[in-house]
Design a protein around this nucleic acid. Sequence first.
DNA 1: CTCAGTTTTCAAAGCGCTTTGAATGACGGG
DNA 2: CCCGTCATTCAAAGCGCTTTGAAAACTGAG
Lengths: 343, 343
Amino acid sequence: MNLKQLSEILGLSQTTVSRALNGYPEVNEATRERVQAAATKHGYRPNSRAKGLATGRSMVIGHVIPSSSQHEMVNPIFGDFVAGAARTYGAHGYDMMFTNADDTSIERTYRDLFQRGAVDGVVLQGPKVNEHRIEVLTRMAVPFIVHGRSTGIEVPYDWVDVNNKSSFLRATRFLIDLGHKRIALINGLEDMDFAQRRREGYLQALQEADLTPEPALMRSAEMTEVYGHHEACDMLQLDTPPTAILVSSMISAIGVRRALNEAGLKMGRDVSVIAHDDDLSYLKNGQDVPIFTATRSSVRQAGEIAAEMLIDRIKSPDDPVKTRLLEAELVVGGSTGPAPDRF
Amino acid sequence: MNLKQLSEILGLSQTTVSRALNGYPEVNEATRERVQAAATKHGYRPNSRAKGLATGRSMVIGHVIPSSSQHEMVNPIFGDFVAGAARTYGAHGYDMMFTNADDTSIERTYRDLFQRGAVDGVVLQGPKVNEHRIEVLTRMAVPFIVHGRSTGIEVPYDWVDVNNKSSFLRATRFLIDLGHKRIALINGLEDMDFAQRRREGYLQALQEADLTPEPALMRSAEMTEVYGHHEACDMLQLDTPPTAILVSSMISAIGVRRALNEAGLKMGRDVSVIAHDDDLSYLKNGQDVPIFTATRSSVRQAGEIAAEMLIDRIKSPDDPVKTRLLEAELVVGGSTGPAPDRF
DNA sequence: CTCAGTTTTCAAAGCGCTTTGAATGACGGG
DNA sequence: CCCGTCATTCAAAGCGCTTTGAAAACTGAG
């Protein structure tokens, strides 16, 4: 069932039918109702491609999945962010498209998506420090939003981000206030912007308290469970092991907990742990009392906000740049306690 | 830059340029090269919508995310399955589209996608027992593939699935061979087909060994970490607690491990645990030696296979139905051991 | 040099929609 | 009863591509 057929059934021109369905004012109300009834009855759905071709808009938002050639890691927060965004897209009549690109072709992929007219805007996830893609998209003058920010990029751009620095600053201060002096940081890959900011917050708190940062207590890699376990085991072997550990993800924090258990240490008593909690749906931080003391910020909500902002940008390309800084909350759970006396 | 412009630059007709780029034989090789060079030079990318409109194919595969109104759960395996599929799609020139639909509108959403001509095929994820959507799609006579199967649906359809029954049968037997008699099952939601099959395997193994299944040892719900913890805690309170636990996901198994630790029990000695491991990229089951004894099957690989099969189906709609049963491997880790003597 | 056969190129139609510019019909004031 | 006005409706062009059917250019045999 296409527009032509429907208009023939109704004995109307395509113009009138199209206008009736799209809510244009120059259509008799009686006619509109008749058209709408027929459309519903025959299950008419305008062809998206034809519509897109005619309007010049695709009503699709693109996301590029960087299927890294090196590490086959799929970001665990991906699903929740996407779920948040998808809901908003749906409410505004947008579809969501994913394209896979290996590290070498990400830039070309973005360019492609727009030149092919496949998308009206894109979401840029997981920005690195000096993220080149931001400049590329800016130069292309296309609507996009960054989930995160990128240190070193001077051009203005829309973004939603968690206040990574401030949340790790506060978390570190919290540990210092509890008397901890040897505080470790198990961070994400340091070329990721969020990881860099978290480290800044951590370092600033140490400095405020006149504590000297120790390279041996600062680790960084892709945030898997195994990684958290490995680094924690390693640090517990040190002559003077840390009494507290900041971990950049819940998944890795679970690995840290495993390491502590294996070493016969009790989390929160022998070693304090603070994790960053993205509030993932399948990995809630405990039921009532949080398991981990954590800096918490819902990545799902970030997805919703990002989608909303991107759609705004598509609607008004010339609006001034918008940014949104989400403040993570510091929730206190059972994984932190006063520094143990070890003499 | 569109076809018209490009053909004017080249002094050729649109027909010839189009044919040259799409590899048709009736084009002079010299011309083809000239066209290709110009296309590359000017960064020409054919407009997907126009192309789709002209060919009647959209080169897009649809996935519907059921953003359940009740439980806001995003399946943790989603990301990995999608990453696997995306890679295959990309290799075949397909894009991937996501649409969000709440529980009440899933059916309508599938119908919409095809009627709007937005997709050439869809992937149906997470089928339940008597999955209605399969019948709907069959009746619509559109290309689709099911990740999983659905007990109770008689019509033939393409699917990829893990042998859930056999893997849980083998896992349960393995525990029985180790002397366990009180074996618990912490399963997914029982209206999900995979959960039902796993329970069947579990029950069959018990029956073979003349063990009576106990309702108190069989739990089912959405597979979060908290759920695993909660059910394990609960069962440890029983007069005669289980000596072994089968868990339908790694995430929940982590919750079970937490419960055991809190109770001062050692996993693999006091209580054995076997988990189903989807081999998620961010949640590897240990480094060299698996942490959990597990039934393992890569969901990422399933994604790749599903995508491949769906594309085949789109290419040859009349081929006989294809199915693919993946056998999970039983990897032995540190979480299982002989049943403890408790008298 | 001619002509059938082959290779190469082209103009134009068509995919299903929106949108422009024009036509039609109804209405009421003069 | 005529005509300007407003409310409706319409035919046709256009979005950027593919594909059909025909034309042009080239080939080699006679």
